[in-house]
Design a protein around this nucleic acid. Structure first.
Lengths: 342, 342
DNA sequence: TTGTAAGCGTTATCAT
DNA sequence: ATGATAACGCTTACAA
């Protein structure tokens, strides 16, 4: 920015005092006469002075900036997390610089570089679907750069994580389907390498077993991209094939559930009468589709807020807390709508 | 960030050369022996050197950072714009710092301050619903800070704007309804002070007039918040009241259309047979609801890309182009789905 | 109560 | 081909 912004130098010149006096007066340091303070502040106001955060950052080796790395803003869930992050960050005088990876590993490494070059004080990360190697993060953790992972968490030892209890969320969803009388429940699963995928899968299987050990039917359909087209195709195939068919679907994602719903409708299968359906994430559209979709709601804003609070704690303390004291698991909320009630 | 990042000083010390030599070698300046260049680069690599963008920013009075101000990331439309912005920005070596106003005027002024403090080189802005006074922007424009407004554009003279042709978008949508045989079309309108609202309203009225001047029916329902609850209530009232009722609705937004759809369904009114429905924005859910919603699609990513390209142009040229040469209006795309086809 | 000067990491200018 | 130095805007010992 080249606009002739006023600096403390300008104020100092104007008043014939030294730079340090101005600096101290603006910061309300002790040992400055009320008179000088007043004059400095007036002049600052008049010249429309704004402290230069860049200079500050260089001087203090702190940028008061948090880097946020997410797969994609268009995911409703992530956009709610961002809101939570910004809320807490700004309230504490921190800026947020946001980068999307577009689910690409290479992009993830590149935005990470950008963030480091910009001297972020800490990082909030939800990594890409492609990311299987976490060295780019572990290196930084070893250097004691504060990092909090949220939603998608890595399987590395000293990571600080904020997630929802995906196991329990899935467990509750499937148990609900069972209680509604569905017995042949299939699971439309997500990208394999993500912990959330594994957790939801485990919750699904566990619910089946716990409810009635004699239930023999289970089916896991891999839907790696997780978008509605893929799900649409897969579900269509399942119901067109001869043989035993599910009477309910639990999808790892509302998008996948929406695809499934369209597939079922296109085959003339009635929801929830013939096939029950539960999704995951409570996207905006879930309550608007027909029939309204039952889903597991994740507290997005709360995840963002919690992760940011923890990060702020890590950045401002020298003594490290134990990982156990910092990692947090939040509860999900099962929202029962028409698609699973018969 | 306090992690002992290597600086050019460290490299210089290691090789017993001066700072300037290192700086020049890294930048491939002429007048440095190939040998030194190689050695410097090797050492940089080995020490994991990363240029400090903050120092650079201070030195060059350029931050290579673009500030983006939007109402809310959770709006699907804005999230697509963001993707477009990031794409172009990163490709040109610029960072993006993103702030939401949450549709609040005060918040808008405060994030603007933050951005200025952080020495952004330029600004991409879509202002809040509450913003009626543009002084905070005009002041900066007068100081020659490059600003490009997108989607929501201010009525000020020297602004550079990127919008879609909302008039035409609305015009096409309403004309389509007329062609399908609907004759009593009502418009669910948005926040009054936005240009987009006025344009869509005008397009609606103009289409009615142009199609058949004898059409007497028109109805504009103000829906200032624009969310689906409000729309739901308003539409329900309209259809429950005695007297003449519309046979089609053109909503300024898919969310409002979704609310209308739910209202109609709850009253047992069939879409598209009894009442036709067209929305605006082509949100993800529009194709997934029942019946699929006809809508006017805005090229979100393209808006972001275009605005960013223009901004980059403004930032890198000293001679100012004429406003007319820089402001851009993009075309919308009418997507016809079942909700308006009878 | 106020001023001086060093330094954060980098580059541009002017030597050598 | 390389080095020394000032400067970007600010804070903070240390001096006065």
């Amino acid at each position: 920015m080249k606009l002739g912004q006023a600096t403390i130098k300008d104020i100092a010149k104007e008043l014939n005092v030294s730079l340090s006096t101005v600096s101290r007066a603006l910061k309300n340091y002790p040992g400055i006469s009320e008179d000088t303070k007043r004059k400095v502040k007036e002049t600052a106001e008049r010249l429309n002075y704004r402290p230069n955060a860049v200079a500050l950052s260089l001087r203090q080796s702190r940028s008061f900036t948090i880097g946020v790395i997410i797969p994609e803003v268009v995911h409703f869930f992530f956009s709610t997390v961002i809101s939570g992050i910004e809320e807490i960050a700004y309230a504490n005088g921190y800026n947020v610089i946001l980068c999307q990876t577009n689910e690409k590993y290479e992009r993830e490494k590149s935005v990470l570089d950008t963030m480091l070059a910009n001297q972020v004080d800490g990082l909030l990360v939800s990594f890409s679907k492609e990311t299987k190697d976490f060295e780019h993060f572990t290196k930084l953790i070893a250097l004691e750069l504060p990092i909090v992972f949220f939603d998608r968490i890595p399987e590395i030892d000293d990571a600080v994580n904020v997630t929802v209890n995906d196991f329990q969320g899935a467990y509750n969803a499937v148990t609900h389907l069972l209680q509604e009388g569905y017995r042949k429940i299939a699971h439309i699963s997500g990208p394999e390498n993500l912990t959330i995928t594994k957790q939801r899968k485990a919750g699904y299987l566990s619910a089946l077993k716990d409810f009635d050990p004699s239930i023999a039917y289970s089916l896991i359909v891999e839907c790696p991209s997780g978008n509605e087209e893929e799900s649409f195709q897969l579900v269509k195939e399942i119901f067109q094939q001869p043989g035993e068919k599910p009477d309910a679907l639990f999808a790892h994602h509302d998008m996948a559930a929406a695809g499934a719903m369209m597939a079922l409708k296109s085959l003339g299968i009635r929801i929830p009468d013939e096939v029950g359906l539960v999704g995951y994430s409570n996207w905006q559209f879930s309550s608007m589709i027909d029939p309204p979709l039952s889903t597991v709601s994740q507290p997005g804003a709360c995840i963002g807020e919690t992760a940011t609070k923890i990060l702020l704690g890590m950045m401002n303390k020298t003594g490290n807390l134990e990982k156990e004291q910092r990692s947090v698991v939040l509860d999900t909320d099962l929202i029962i709508r028409k698609s699973s009630k018969r």
